[in-house]
Each structure stands twice: as C-alpha cells, then as structure tokens.
Design a protein around this nucleic acid. Sequence first.
DNA 1: ACGATTGTTCCGAATATTGGAACACAAATA
DNA 2: TATTTGTGTTCCAATATTCGGAACAATCGT
Lengths: 254, 254
Amino acid sequence: MAVLELVVNADMPLRFTDIHALSRQPRGTLHRHLSHLVEEGLLFQRADLTYEPGLRLLSFAHRAWSRNDLRRIARPHLDRLHAETGETVHLGVLRTTDIVYLDKVESRQTVRMESQIGRVSPAYCTGLGKAALSVLPPARLDASLARISYHPFTANTHRSRGALMADLDRIRGRGYAIDAEEHEVEIHCVAAPVSSGDKACETHGIVGGISVTGPAYRVTIRQLEAWSGLVRDVANSISHDAGVGLCPVSAPDW
Amino acid sequence: MAVLELVVNADMPLRFTDIHALSRQPRGTLHRHLSHLVEEGLLFQRADLTYEPGLRLLSFAHRAWSRNDLRRIARPHLDRLHAETGETVHLGVLRTTDIVYLDKVESRQTVRMESQIGRVSPAYCTGLGKAALSVLPPARLDASLARISYHPFTANTHRSRGALMADLDRIRGRGYAIDAEEHEVEIHCVAAPVSSGDKACETHGIVGGISVTGPAYRVTIRQLEAWSGLVRDVANSISHDAGVGLCPVSAPDW
DNA sequence: ACGATTGTTCCGAATATTGGAACACAAATA
DNA sequence: TATTTGTGTTCCAATATTCGGAACAATCGT
C-alpha cells in the first residue's frame, strides 16, 4: 500500500529506481510488490518501464461514488443551495486529517465538474475541514489534531494547534465555519458540518460538511455571513436525512 | 483483493456473514482481511457493522484520472468530435475483457457527466470494446477472447466467439465499429480504435477507442455510417498525438 | 571497451498468514 | 428464566509466504 500510494501521488510516471529511492525497500522486495500491483491492475507498467496508476482504481471509485449514500442524500440539498447562492457548492467528508470532496455543483461549467471529486485537501485550513473538525467527538478530534502539520499555504493559514482550536470554538458556537483565504489566495468560503449516523457512537459515524465557495472579489466576508444561516440549515437537513436513512438492517437481495 | 472487489461490486453494504457466504473464506481469515482493508481506508465499516467502499478509493482515482496522459491528449479531439456530431462522445480503454470509460462529452448536462467515468462495460458487445479488440495483437486478442462469456444483453448481442470474430474482421477492414443495440436497446454507437505507444510492443501499450453514441430513433445506422470516417480520423489523430507524446525518458523533478 | 546504472531473478531464512476452534455477546425461542 | 441459534471477534500452532541479500543480464555513458 505504501508503494501504491507513492506511485499514485507522484506527479509523473516513476521508474523502478525512482520508487526504490523513495520507498527505501530492498530491490528484490520492491520489484515483487510492483509486479503484484501490476497484476492486480492497481498499477500499470508502460512500455518505457515506468509505473503509473492503473485503470482498476477508476472502476473501484466509480462503484464507491455511485453507491455512496451521503452523496445521494445530499444532492438535492446541494442543488437547492446552489440555486439560492449562485456560487460553487461542495460536499466533503473528513478522513482523519483531510477532506475528500464527494460532490460539487458548479456555477459555470468552465472548469470540469468531476475534476474535483475525490480530491483531497487539508482539513485545518479549509471551510469544509474546519466545520467537520468542529463536530468531532473529543477522542477523534485529538487523534486528528495530533497528526496535523501546519503548513502555511497563505498569510491567513492557521499556524498552530492553538489558533485552530480557538477557531473551532468559534465555529462550534456559530454552527458555521469561514475560510478567508486560508488555503488558497483570493478564495472565500463558508461551510457547515454534516454528521451522518448516530452521534452517540464515538468511533464510527461519518463526519463531513458542505460549503459555498467563490472568488474573494465577488464573495465578500459580509456575503459569506449573509449565507451562513442558509448553509447551516441546509447542512442540518442533510444530517437529518442521513440519520433517517440509516440503513435499517437491510438484507441483501439474494 | 478478492474480498475488496466483492464488497465494492455489491449493490449494498454487506454484513460480515454476507461476505463470508460469498467469499467462502474461513471466518478468522476473512475477519482479518476486512480489518486490514478498513485500516487502509479501502473499506469503511459503518455503525451497523456493514462494510462499504472506502473514501481512499476516491482519492486514488482522482489522482489516476487527473494525471492520465491519454485522457489529457484526447480531450480536445473529443470536444471537436462532439461539436461536429452534437451527440455524446466517449473515450474508453480496454482492460482485458472490459472497457473502462475514461472521459465523456455529453450533449445535454441532464445526466451528470462524471457518473460514467470509471464505469466498466463488456468489450464484446460495445462499439468501443469491439473497436479496441480489433487492433489487439493476436496474442493479446486470444487471451481476451478466452475469458469472455457471451451474455445476451439484447437480441443483437453476439452470442459466440465466431460471431464476434467475424464482426472484428469487418471492423478491421473498415477501421470503425458499429454497435446497433448490442448492449442496450435503443442505443446506437459508432466507434474507432485508438492505440497509444508503439504497436511493435506486443505486451505493453494501451488500446482503447472513441465513440459517438445516441438514441436509435435519432441516430440511425445511416447516420452512424455518415459519421464513421470522421470518427476514424479523430481516433487516428489521438493515436498520433499519443505516439508523439510518448514519454521520452523524462526524469522526475526532485 | 569498460565501469556504472538499471531492471530482473533466485533461494534459504525469517516472518506473516492461515483457518480451525474457542470465546463473547445478542437476539430469538422454549 | 434457561436454552438455542446467529453473529462478530480473538487465539495460536502449523504452514505457506514474504523478505532481502546476492547474483545475473542488459543497457547506458564515457
């Protein structure tokens, strides 16, 4: 898995020696690992002997995405939110320290829609991420915070656990999070947490959020706060629907 | 991997016992496998103890898709083909016996675009699949054909290796494939093969295709044949670009 | 032509996986 | 309430697999 992650996250096809240098595994072992991954279709070996992500990853994701309950439940709400704001709307889910984008409704189709789905962004400096962190039970929050490294993407990015915690307290109080160019410059965002399943359960249970994002020149902080109530309400609707649709012991159909 | 495939391809979250029955592995072994898959984020265990595809699959696919060379190269050509025909255009790649959809340009945005990417369809009864099979070197073609089971999706679906082979011969002769309701009723399609990399190489080298698809009432067989030359030419352009862009020993940038 | 680099194969030693059986818990049944 | 059935989890010795150093080709650079 470490090898797969390494090759997939690279920015270009890697040769055997490149992977060898990065993974620090013995050559014999590494070679066998790569062969297995290629056999399984998780990696693809090109004619020039470089390795790149395999097609099977795509089909896995297609199944994962098209089946996803939260996404299915949230979709009409996202559409509504987009209709009322006119800006880009995201749905994301927390995965330890990162947010994975599950769905998107875009104002203009200039940037291709699916290009964002499956993308991963740090939780501590995005609206979605901070909203999700704010509703995490203490145990899981600690586990996440312990693994964060505070990379300063912009001048506004939180630089310490303390700063993040203070922000999370504010977010818990208001029920929504604001990202004012913390991850990308010229980008503003307002987000609210979505939690599926029973909150009673400390370990399981999906935590995520929805957000409205736009360029800073058009979407001012004032505008974000005007939308904040709406975003929070829509997020609550999704949480509610997700709680209701909580798979009631459904048996497989065979 | 067999367990992962099983859970991902199911139509609903599976319980431990369901997977046990399907996989025929001893309970101890299966339990450990599932635990490992959950640890790795490839599966997710819900509060009701059922298993569903994990989020990590999405992020893997995002990387795989956004980096994919063939897709990047083909995109402008697909746009051109769509502009000239006005119908849905697909790009797909052959994976042993199946076609994996890599990209899509749709006439109307009614059906969501990304819903198809990563989807898998049988090669022997789709235009894309037959086009790809038609340019496969004999060794690889045999390997693929040996693993096909001829499920009759419609009245027009090929039912035997012989029928498929005869069709492939025609396709080789003309340079394009026609799918007249072989996979789905009321759906017509014309496709042409794309082969990236050096054809000299027998084992490596990507084989795929592009297609124009539409409802049978609007896109008649006559219409398909009118488009066939265009589709073939665009496919050749993509093959050419892919051959040129054939990664010339590029070193990683670190 | 020569050494350096790269990809691949081999095989005994070390290790992790296997799977049957026992365990814990719940829900259903008597 | 006692008993049974079903379900998820843990344990551990036998076993099969992986590990990784070293040898082997093939290619590249000079």
